[in-house]
């Protein structure tokens, strides 16, 4: 029972971590929180689900399309709701992102209706026992995919030219420009990558909960934000750790404390962290 809950927690936690990475990367480079991250996640899920529902697209293609659509939405969002407001009081882009989030959510509501959509294809998942632990292959697949994507991101940031350029922009924008780095392009790239990860998270959750609906991004978005803070905003390994911890805490809390307040656990942790250690578990750029 305990181990099962732990596994459930790690699974949802790995998805929170993927979304939290988007928050953290964007915060790192712009110092802003992209409030519409949850809607980008929702967009990824919808695109994959709608494509699969046509019956003409295979699963991997639909998954990739969900990621790309989310990534493009993220880039568009940056152009429309963030870039024109650069240099303004930080409240201004924050509220603009809130506006964008509402807009996207209600657009999805108008286009697709309020009801849950099941995932269009059935996977035959079994339960295997790994080291005495019952692990559903679905959970295993989600965990593996999420961790794989995170690994790819870490490699990108550490070892590629563009990854380092993104870090340079986050550290010191003017000096980065003196290296010939086009900051606007790096910001767009950051939105692209962060949003693609959120899109992937959306597709995974659409499969896991077998439900895709316009407001599906609200709670995971909030929880991922909490995870990003937990790990120290702007800190990539921190976001991953924060996501996993939060997923586990939520799962154990729901099992052993109260399931009615499951969704409140993340925020209770968030407020607790802000109270005790506002810089996060690993130190972040947040202040």
């Amino acid at each position: 029972m305990f181990l099962q809950q732990l596994l459930n927690g790690l699974t949802t936690g790995s998805v929170y971590a993927l979304i939290a990475l988007g928050y953290t990367m964007i915060y790192g480079i712009l110092g802003l929180i992209n409030f519409a991250q949850g809607e980008i996640y929702m967009c990824g899920a919808f695109v994959a689900v709608l494509l699969l529902a046509t019956g003409k697209v295979n699963f991997y293609l639909a998954f990739a399309a969900g990621m790309v659509a989310a990534a493009l939405l993220g880039v568009a969002l940056e152009r429309v709701a963030f870039r024109p407001l650069r240099g303004a009081h930080p409240l201004v882009p924050l509220i603009s992102a809130i506006g964008a989030s509402i807009f996207l959510q209600s657009l999805a509501l108008l286009l697709f209706g309020p009801n849950d959509r099941p995932f269009p294809i059935q996977f035959t998942f079994s339960t295997i026992t790994v080291a005495g632990l019952p692990l559903s292959t679905l959970q295993g697949a989600i965990l593996a995919a999420a961790l794989g994507l995170m690994g790819l991101l870490m490699v990108f940031v550490r070892y590629t030219r563009y990854g380092k350029a993104i870090v340079a922009c986050a550290l010191d924008r003017d000096t980065a420009r003196l290296m010939g780095i086009n900051v606007d392009r790096m910001v767009a790239l950051t939105f692209f990558i962060g949003s693609a990860l959120s899109g992937a998270a959306g597709v995974m959750m659409a499969i896991y909960y077998n439900a895709t609906y316009p407001r599906m991004g609200l709670l995971p978005g909030l929880k991922a934000f909490s995870a990003a803070i937990l790990g120290g905003v702007g800190n990539i390994p921190g976001a991953i750790l924060g996501g996993l911890l939060l997923g586990v805490a939520e799962s154990l809390g729901a099992a052993y404390v109260s399931s009615g307040y499951k969704d409140a656990i993340a925020f209770a942790i968030l407020i607790g962290v802000l109270l005790l250690r506002p810089q996060g578990i690993l130190k972040g750029r947040g202040d």
């Binding site: 929180i33 947040g286 202040d287």
Partner: peptide, 22 residues
Amino acid sequence: GLPTLRLKEDYLAIVTLGFGVI
């Protein structure tokens, strides 16, 4: 407000949103 108002404005936005959910 006590734990959050010392921090950047984004935190309060999300914390209050979370508070609303709770």
